Simulated scan of single mutants.
Amino acid sequence: MTTLRAGLIGLGAMGRNHARVLAGLDGVRLVGVVDPAGDPGRSAQGVPVLAATRDLLALGVDYAVVACPTALHEEVGLELAAAGVSALIEKPLAHSAEAARVLVAAFEANGLVAGVGHIERYNPALQNLRARLEEGELGELFQVSTRRQGPFPHRIADVGVIKDLATHDIDLTSWVTGLSYGSVSARTVSKSGRPHEDMVAIVGQLTGGVMCSHLVNWLSPLKERSTVVTGERGCFVADTLTADLTYYANGARDTEWEALRAFRGVSEGDMVRYAIAKREPLLVEHERFRDAVLGLPSDIVTLRQGLETVEVATAVLESAMTGNTMSVPLRDRIFAGR
């Protein structure tokens, strides 16, 4: 395997994990890290810590991982694209839909491999769930409901909970179902004294009429990461903290209990918790991106998919500000239907 020279931009909480994975990734050599604050936590894995992206480019890299604050993604990404360097950009792709479109155009114009770090796609529970939905195990889909809550992460200062956390749920919902968002309605609150929202409740409709709902916040002492997909044959529950996937089947047995026989809805059936292999999602994400840079068949989150997620998040913010249900722009649709 060809050894690729990789760089990392940003040594924050996520950047430190990227450095760890890159340092041990087969076929890749981490050659430098960019962070103006240096490396007080000694997380750079022994490579040079540089002050600016141009210093990293001077070392000669095949690709870079962009893990700096979201507000800087456009500037850093354009610098990499202009230098002919492929990039894996942490989610969200950019701070605005306009900036995201600029990044898509820049990398596509230069014929470069570029992806977005929507890490939940590589969670074993969601990977298994998506495969089962593709096989039609639930039959017709009715609803996707997610809950993503926990304490406030003090490292996040440039965006609110919608663009930082809810973009996980927006992307994974489209990805596991193969459906795009048609409309969204949202309400937010801000209780932490920051200029951005720290709680959001979203109700949406996907193409084909499938409903979705997302509860996301930084205000709960309970850390929860749950995805529930309900269909005509039952529901799947994915816990992405533990990477467990459980199936709850609709009951199929007749009953002599008159009160239950009169109920025309579903009844409780078998429950199955699947035994699935549990590899680290971040490692899988890096392996897929490495293979894409090498020109091998690989499944990465494209910039156009990242753009679609940012456009949905933008519609969510606008709905929260105006109190109106917002349609999601039809351009650049990736998830057109199952």
Rank of each mutant, 00 (worst) to 15 (best):
I202V: 15
R264E: 12
R42E: 13
V61S: 05
D39F: 04
E280R: 09
G265Q: 08
L88H: 02
E308K: 12
M14E: 07
W257Y: 13
L245N: 06
A19Q: 02
A259L: 15
E232A: 13
E137F: 06
Q149N: 12
V61H: 01
E256P: 05
V237N: 09
A67Q: 06
T177C: 08
P329Y: 03
G265C: 06
E79R: 08
E74D: 13
A51Q: 15
G24F: 06
V65Q: 01
C68E: 04
D244Q: 14
G10M: 00
C68D: 09
L206V: 08
W257H: 14
V216K: 00
K91H: 10
G46C: 08
Y122W: 15
L50D: 04
R273G: 08
S86P: 03
G115I: 01
T53Q: 00
A67C: 11
T325G: 00
L303Q: 05
E285D: 09
T177Y: 00
G32Y: 04
C68T: 13
E108C: 07
H95W: 07
L165I: 10
E256Y: 12
S267H: 15
V144G: 04
R101V: 02
V203Q: 15
L93I: 07
A315N: 00
P195A: 07
V200G: 06
V65W: 04
E308W: 06
T2V: 12
H168P: 05
L129G: 03
L317R: 01
G337E: 03
L245H: 06
E285C: 10
